[in-house]
Simulated scan of single mutants.
Amino acid sequence: MDDAVRAGLSGAADTALVVPVPEAEPVIGTHRRQFDVAAVWGLPPHVVVLYPFVSPGQVDDLVCRRLAEVLAGQPAFDCTFTETAWFGQDEVLWLRPDPEEPFRLLTRAVHATFPDHPPYRGAHGDPQPHLSIGTRRLGDLAGLRAAEEEVRRHLPVTTRVDRVALMAGRRDPGSWRLATTFPLGGAPD
């Protein structure tokens, strides 16, 4: 494992496999920093592939090689975020990806390769792919509804999904870092 990956994992307590969506930052970044703890921790706008993943101390050359192989077997794809949605009646505001199925296939493929690490520890069965904007836990409903109104005016957000990022950090502000990325099939290295 190279030094850059080691540095990305250093001091971390958790890892996650995510699809970063930098194109969403201008649209939702301000709202995420106010309402989404993952943004406070330092995670960019993203769709989760698998969280939690293996502990940082377990990430080694074999884990990275297995991830590279399974993800290279999944095709790159284009995705558009055209609408907002809510988990619970009004608990978590998020963007819906279109299409959703390629994200589900990424999650299933990685989970099949690492069966001891179910998505969200198995709490949600087949999890809904989403890009979180914020939770009511970090703000009031009126603030989230206002954020939703503003975000809707700037949709759609379009991205090319051609890699998955291994990120690592703690539940501390600014602690999450990129460890490495894995290209999907057909994506440039």
Rank of each mutant, 00 (worst) to 15 (best):
S10G: 15
S10C: 15
G11Q: 13
D14Q: 15
T15A: 13
T15W: 09
A16S: 15
A16N: 15
L17M: 06
L17C: 05
V18G: 12
V19H: 04
V19T: 07
V21F: 00
P22D: 03
P22Q: 01
E23H: 01
E25I: 02
E25N: 03
E25Q: 10
P26V: 03
P26M: 05
V27W: 02
V27M: 01
I28F: 07
G29R: 01
G29L: 00
R32A: 01
Q34I: 03
Q34W: 06
Q34F: 00
F35N: 06
D36F: 07
D36Q: 08
V37M: 09
V37W: 09
V37N: 05
V37Y: 04
A39I: 14
W41E: 15
L43H: 14
P44S: 12
P44C: 08
H46E: 10
V47N: 08
V47E: 05
V48C: 14
Y51I: 08
P52N: 02
F53Q: 09
F53K: 07
F53V: 11
S55K: 04
S55R: 07
S55P: 01
P56S: 11
G57L: 00
G57R: 00
G57N: 05
Q58M: 01
Q58Y: 00
Q58E: 05
V59T: 08
V59W: 09
D61K: 07
D61I: 04
L62V: 12
L62Y: 06
V63C: 04
V63W: 01
C64Q: 15
C64M: 14
R65Y: 11
R66I: 06
A68L: 10
A68W: 00
L71M: 05
A72R: 12
A72E: 13
G73M: 08
G73R: 12
Q74H: 10
Q74T: 10
P75Y: 09
F77C: 12
D78H: 11
F81P: 05
E83P: 05
A85Q: 13
W86E: 03
G88T: 05
G88K: 04
G88E: 03
Q89W: 11
